[in-house]
Amino acid sequence: MISLSILEAGLVNGLLTGGVYALVALGLTLIYGVLHIVNFAHGSLLMIAMFGGWMLVSWAHLDPYAALPLMVVIMFVIGWGLYAGVIGRISGGDDRRILLATLGVAIVLDNLALVLFTGDTRTIETPYQFAVVEAGPLLLSVPKLISFGVAIVLALLLWAFMALTDTGRAIRAVAREPDGARLVGIRPGRIFALSYGIGIACLGAAGCLLLPSFYVSPQVGNVFVLTAFTIVVLGGMGSFPGAVVGGLLIGVTESLGGLFLGESLGPIGISLVFILVLLFRPTGLFRAAR
């Protein structure tokens, strides 16, 4: 039997976890919305971001939250360079080849991490890793509350960037009509690289926010990536508010699915929601902010 208090707790907990998922999905939705491809390397790049954060924390003794802005910049450079130097260059702009290229990049990165860090699992120790906020009978994890808040701020920032800046407008133009954008003097190749860079920069933030409550290993990206795809589709590809709402919905679905179906069968809820949304509302809950 599931008591009401557990149900409440499950709901709140699902929302908090959903915030983390939204973080991972924000970058993916941007890449999806602009390049229209499934970025297979997303999980691997999250892993790289987490290892980057882990190095800054355990070698340079930074606080993970202090490492965050640094990792955002580093991941932007990595993402931008990866697209400009590898993915874009070898794929010739062909969707099918971009997809294969991201797959190839994922294989290289996963094994690079294995070579550099071995397959061992790492965690970091912070003074606040077990800190909780007491909300009635609930104990809410502080690191999770922080990542929840940052997810929303980040989504707002991205939305503002896309809506209010010239670069943002250029990205939207390319996402909609690459040929037309070229005519007005925008170079789609550069915009693609820029969008990929921004999408991956989001992972820099996600990685650092995950560190205090999660672990890092070369395989860690796979833990999140399928869920992130689901959120992107659910929220509407390319939509930042969609990614946040989708993330929260998926978090709650997973949490309640686990409560009602058990943690073994529970994850099926995510895939079922995903399939149903695709079949009945393939545009997602939100239209992309184009």
């Binding site: 070898i90 794929s91 080849r97 290229a101 797959l103 190839g104 994922a106 294989i107 290289v108």
Partner: peptide, 10 residues
């Protein structure tokens, strides 16, 4: 293997 894959795609 991944690197060669990228080369083939290119």
């Amino acid at each position: 293997y991944g690197a060669i894959l990228l080369a083939i795609i290119a």
